[in-house]
């Protein structure tokens, strides 16, 4: 690699060493920056995160909070890269993310901030009103392909799913598909709203997403889901106009999950104050008002 001969220069070695060390030590002191709160991540949580930010900024005029979506994976990657202060995620950290964070010197802290029930939705004209978790698994893995197989009128099932950076996608895969792969003909939608639009247009469609998205939509039908108990349960109240919180807290409705905020290390300063407020009755009240499910301990549930 490096032939040996040429100009002798032990002084040069020392000089280069000195310059390098000085550069590192001198420039190291430049590090560190303060700023506003940047929040990035889960599309499922983006409506809630925007509302939290809006209200908090009104109450704290000196604070600026920037909220963007992109998916849970995007937010966590940004957190590890140091380009956001809070990552919203609708799933727990993956092993690969934990490894990357730890090796990068980022000790990620996890804060459950709300709950979410995942709705399974079909077109309003679809006669199917309930599905078991096994049937949902069968539909999304491709084992069940015709509505007739689940008590509906004959017709090829059109499966709508989310992109793989979606926490909801990952949650469904792990909890319902039991880590089996999605069927190859699933159509990938860029967000829950797009997925809901697709199901609303397609009489043979099926989709899934956070319950908050489907509270106000009459063009999608939320099906009841039968879990281990064998009883088909809806995440909505009987009139379909609000969330059945008790069914989620008691796990009677079988597809629910925590929603998380992640921070790079123990939060401090404004980020800590903001997270404390999110977990306070005021923040949890907003979660409820926006169609999410507040944490049970904070609501007395």
């Amino acid at each position: 690699m490096r032939p040996r001969s040429g100009s002798s220069s032990s002084g040069r070695v020392a000089r280069w060493s000195g310059i390098g060390a000085a550069a590192i030590l001198g420039l190291a002191s430049v590090a560190g920056s303060a700023g506003n709160i940047t929040v990035k991540g889960s599309d499922t949580m983006v409506l809630l995160a925007q509302k939290w930010a809006e209200v908090y900024q009104k109450q704290n005029p000196g604070v600026a909070i920037q909220v963007t979506g992109g998916g849970s994976g995007t937010g966590i990657a940004a957190l590890i890269n140091g380009t956001c202060d809070i990552a919203n995620s609708s799933r727990e950290l993956k092993g690969s993310e934990r490894k990357l964070a730890l090796s990068s010197g980022v000790d990620i802290k996890e804060f459950p901030v709300a709950l979410d029930a995942i709705c399974v939705v079909v077109h309003p004209n679809n006669p199917v009103s309930e599905l078991s978790t096994e049937q949902i698994k069968g539909i999304y893995t491709g084992a069940i392909n015709d509505w007739r197989q689940v008590g509906g009128t004959p017709g090829i099932i059109m499966r709508y799913s989310r992109e793989n950076n979606s926490g909801t996608y990952a949650f469904m895969k792990e909890q319902i598909l039991q880590n089996k792969d999605y069927a190859a003909d699933c159509q990938t939608m860029p967000g829950t709203a797009a997925l809901a639009d697709a199901v609303a247009r397609d009489p043979l469609g099926i989709g899934y997403g956070g319950v908050a998205y489907f509270l106000s939509r009459t063009d999608c039908k939320v099906v009841r889901v039968k879990g281990a108990s064998g009883v088909a349960v809806s995440p909505l109240t009987d009139d379909g106009k609000s969330i059945a919180y008790e069914r989620v807290y008691s796990r009677e409705y079988p597809i629910s999950r925590y929603l998380y905020c992640y921070t790079p290390g123990t939060p401090r300063g404004e980020t800590k104050a903001y997270l404390d407020w999110i977990l306070s009755p005021a923040g949890q009240g907003i979660a409820k008002a926006e169609g999410y499910i507040p944490l049970p301990a904070r609501t007395g549930n």
Binding site: R2, P3, R4, S5, G6, S7, S8, S9, S10, R12, V13, W16
Partner: peptide
């Protein structure tokens, strides 16, 4: 980069790449 290769044996000279 500047790789300064300094042999420990006397008489051999440093090479910089």
């Amino acid at each position: 980069n500047a790789v300064i290769d300094q042999p420990q044996a006397s008489g051999q000279k440093t090479v910089t790449t």
